[in-house]
Write a protein that binds this DNA or RNA. Structure first.
Lengths: 339, 339
DNA sequence: CTGAAAGCGCTTACAG
DNA sequence: CTGAAAGCGCTTACAG
């Protein structure tokens, strides 16, 4: 016999009867209303304890017109979501912050192109009170305008400031990348390539821009660009392409640590030493930077903290508070072995 | 001004009015009841379309006493959940199967020791109709007995057949490991070590047992065991330990591909060649097996398919169908470069 | 095949 | 500070 979930669970009505008060009063206690006398409060809490009462979520949602659920929307294939420690950090920050709240997190893995009908219906069908959107791409107008329909916090700046809505948490990717590349220049590197992130994502666009900016400031050539896709094999592929194109490269700025790990593999295949023959600078400071034999020097962004800040901001929006449109977090160059 | 989610959404009542029928009839159409005349059905569908109606999930849950939500419970730290491609495969299979259903998936990352109050309340509070539990450990009596409270499908056999409840999907880990080790023996290896998985998990216990069984069958010594934890650094650590203890090792069976990647790094540090000096056999056939420079020979388990099978089984339980208590999936040795 | 009505378990003004 | 009552938006026997 298969049991049924939540069958026979005690109701607020039963708690009220047990405590000898009205349902309204039990509701007030459950929701932490301040205007309940101490002794009544105690009686109700006792009854709740004895009956092991848990409020029915559906009934609560229906009556209060709030779901107490938040969607985490990630327009990426499952494999990429799980493959990049960056996401792990973001999720960790989010769950850490939500743990203390009454909200639950619902994960919506969408396709990178445009969200499925099911995702759209889910989001717009009143199933969540707000959404956290991470890793958004150009062309996803639906997500970009989601902020007009419900409270939304984006991880990363909007691609098109005109159409985009909602708040966001980000780092100054261009400045961060530029400071990393400036470090390479300072160390004496002159032929500096880059492995860029996707050209349809803010992080991809801005880090490339930062690399460019730093090279121009140093009067160096900015022609060595290989396109990456934020995956490990993509980083390896891009590095091979770079190596095939130009033998004189003495440093490479890779737009994510995971791609940097791939690049390191490609460099090793060619028998080159890191950092002696070729310096490698990553971005993120995710666990990937420390996963290989050589610790990767990287531009650190506080990913866990960014996830936490996203959640915190959404929680405040949900509580009706005013929040700043954007929050820019600090970055720093973390020097290790690879550069 | 922050918008409110789902505000002003059309109700079933409005659809009924627009279509000129009763609410009951609209409900029947929405739920695909067969006893609705074709023309009425068409009229209702038209009204639904025009109003862009989506049923209110909370109201539906409350009235039907079903949540249309499934929990995915993973008693692992965020970092491990995201770090191992095995989980990615499982989730991929699950979401693929659920995509076509009306159920949504709620991720519950719990601590490996015992689930937090919030997780327990969430599961028992009638928030989901059933649960999928992956990566369970000894000592988690709550999860083990969850099957007595609601429909549950486990990924992996129960640790204690007596107290455990619910259904499960698994491979024959012992037999699979034994066949892999038999392959190593066949290739002429004689001093075969193992890096085991956690001793509090079925997969850890059974793969170790399989390694042992195959060695004894071949009259070889089974004393070279190092304890791993299913993480990459853990695999590297265990391999270093093995290498320090015994110089004559000519092969190692590693209980997961991710640990095998770590082991490969440790072997390279020692200047040994794979597979010439030391053969490495992994387990899973996850993307990790192909992530490095050398393709890892591994014991394949159909992880995506196992996730899909778990979801399928739960869906059938939820539909009131009888399902087999367990389902054992096939495995095979995939020969590549490392052994 | 269709509708009227009760009810799912809560919250929330409104009175007092 | 507390309670009676309406109502949230659905589903589901029950009649017909």
């Amino acid at each position: 016999m298969i049991p049924t979930a939540g069958a026979g669970a005690p109701t607020l009505e039963q708690v009220a009867a047990a405590a000898g008060v009205s349902r309204s009063t039990v509701s007030r206690v459950v929701n932490g209303s301040p205007k309940v006398s101490p002794d009544v409060m105690r009686a109700v809490q006792l009854a709740i304890e004895q009956l092991d009462y848990t409020p029915n979520r559906a009934a609560r949602s229906l009556a209060a017109r709030r779901t107490m659920a938040i969607a985490l929307v990630v327009p990426e294939a499952t494999a990429r979501f799980f493959g990049d420690p960056y996401f792990a950090a973001i999720v960790q920050g989010i769950t850490r912050e939500l743990e203390a709240s009454d909200y639950v997190l619902n994960l919506q893995l969408a396709s990178p192109e445009s969200p499925s009908d099911k995702t759209v219906r889910y989001l717009l069908g009143g199933n969540v009170d707000g959404a956290l959107v991470v890793s958004h791409h150009t062309g996803d107008g639906f997500l970009a305008s989601l902020g007009e329909r419900m409270p939304v916090v984006f991880g990363g700046r909007p691609l098109d400031p005109a159409t985009d809505s909602g708040c966001w948490v980000d780092v100054d990717n261009a400045a961060a990348a530029a400071s990393g590349v400036a470090y390479l220049v300072e160390r004496g590197h002159r032929r500096i390539a880059t492995i860029a992130g996707p050209a349809d994502m803010p992080a991809g666009i801005d880090r490339l821009e930062g690399w460019r900016r730093a090279l121009r400031a140093a009067d160096l050539r900015d022609d060595l660009v290989a396109q990456g896709d934020f995956t490990l094999p993509g980083g390896a592929r891009a590095m091979r392409e770079l190596l095939a194109r130009e033998a004189e490269i003495d440093a490479v700025f890779v737009a994510s640590d995971l791609m940097a790990v791939g690049a390191l593999g490609a460099i090793r295949e060619r028998g080159l030493r890191v950092p002696q023959d070729l310096a490698v600078l990553g971005f993120d400071d995710s666990p990937a930077a420390l996963s290989g034999e050589i610790a990767i020097t990287t531009v650190r962004q506080p990913s866990v903290e960014m996830g936490a800040e996203m959640a915190r901001t959404l929680l405040r929006m949900l509580a009706g508070e005013d929040v700043p449109r954007s929050r820019i977090m600090p970055t720093e160059v973390v020097v290790r072995e690879s550069a």
